[in-house]
């Protein structure tokens, strides 16, 4: 396969950045998108040029490290697929592909296609956990959980925190991510003691990080490689409103 690539190049956080055109000729259909970039980078290194920086880790679609906005859609046009699991057979020979970093004020570009997603970590630190004394796990049957809630909590827990929702949102909102992280606990009995405090502090941190507001475009749901539904956003809105009126907020 021969491909024309237009890639965002940016030396560092303060550089203005620009799109640069590359030609890669020896791409195989069975390569993943990241392997295709590896091919490009090897070529660039041999030519003595700076290789393109991009995030990756497990390359099996579960870690949430890979990013990239491919032809205007985070993780590319393939539904429910991370960039690392996107294969070149989904593209045609001679295609032009535009590759840009995940864009949002809260995700500043570090270099080329690598963005700083630590805002998500700070949201998690604000309440994405359950405070529990360590010790043996209790006997499973002692804590009955309905199948419906268990399934829904698992759906929410699918979130790998890649940030595609923020990248896809025209407002740079992190509502899908935060709502998944809030709901996975809100649906289970273990999450109840800290439920109100959790939603208030996680949403509070989200707003401090400079993410936008949700305007119900539902682009996040479409881009999510784990198909987290926007239903969780509605659940979190409800949870947040109830908690705001029943729990005193700390300034």
């Amino acid at each position: 396969m021969r491909l024309k690539l237009f890639i965002w190049r940016q030396k560092n956080a303060t550089d203005k950045g620009h799109m640069e055109k590359y030609q890669v000729d020896d791409v195989l259909e069975d390569m993943s998108f990241l392997e295709m970039l590896d091919v490009l980078n090897e070529k660039l290194i041999l030519e003595g040029k700076e290789p393109v920086a991009f995030d990756h880790d497990c390359r099996e679609g579960i870690c949430g490290a890979c990013s990239l906005t491919i032809n205007g859609i985070p993780h590319g046009h393939e539904k429910a697929t991370t960039t690392c699991q996107l294969h070149m057979r989904k593209f045609k020979d001679g295609d032009s592909i535009y590759i840009e970093p995940f864009r949002a004020k809260a995700f500043p570009v570090i270099k080329d296609l690598v963005v700083d997603r630590s805002a998500f970590e700070r949201i998690m630190q604000a309440g994405g956990f359950i405070s529990i004394n360590t010790g043996n796990a209790i006997e499973a049957n002692a804590l009955p959980i309905s199948k419906k809630n268990a399934d829904l909590a698992m759906d929410a827990a699918q979130c790998i925190g890649c940030g595609a929702c923020v990248a896809a949102c025209p407002n740079g909102a992190a509502m899908l991510f935060v709502s998944a992280k809030v709901s996975q606990f809100a649906l289970l009995p273990q999450g109840q003691p800290e439920r109100k405090r959790r939603v208030l502090s996680m949403v509070g941190q989200m707003e401090k990080e400079g993410f936008g507001a949700c305007t119900n475009f539902y682009e996040c749901e479409a881009a999510c490689p784990k198909q987290i539904p926007v239903r969780f956003i509605a659940m979190m809105n409800r949870d947040y409103l109830c908690s705001r009126v029943t729990e005193p907020v700390e300034a």
Binding site: T69, A104, A173, E219, A222
Partner: peptide, 15 residues
Amino acid sequence: GAKPTKYQVKNYVKA
């Protein structure tokens, strides 16, 4: 303000 840099190419799926 939350999306200061726009994409060069943007495709919408659900919006």
